[in-house]
């Protein structure tokens, strides 16, 4: 029953969103060695506490967002657009 403050639409119920995954991962270049891809795709921390997650407002604006959520309490510490350019524009407009 989490509620997420979408940077585009405002606070909405989590049922409008779909969970992506670990939002802290920087995916390697497409031609990067297989080891780097194994690291990025398969190795995950099982975090107890605050983790950065990607979510998509799939039943809303369809934007991907990065959410800092506490896995123990569901408390959300921050939400920002995943798209770097868009995030910068939103940040500047604050």
């Amino acid at each position: 029953m989490i509620r997420i403050n979408c940077p585009f639409c405002g606070e909405r119920d989590h049922s409008e969103f779909s969970y992506g995954g670990d939002g802290s991962i920087v995916y390697p270049a497409l031609d990067a060695p297989v080891e780097e891809w194994v690291e990025a795709v398969f190795q995950r921390e099982n975090i107890r506490g605050v983790q950065t997650e990607s979510w998509q407002h799939v039943s809303g604006c369809r934007q991907w967002i990065l959410v800092e959520r506490d896995t123990m309490t569901h408390e959300i510490h921050s939400v920002r657009a995943a798209h770097e350019g868009v995030a910068k524009v939103l940040e500047a407009g604050k």
């Binding site: 998509q56 657009a81 995943a82 770097e84």
Partner: peptide, 9 residues
């Protein structure tokens, strides 16, 4: 959408 927004913005 994920690729365009999160990886290849």
């Amino acid at each position: 959408e994920e690729l365009l927004q999160t990886r290849w913005s």
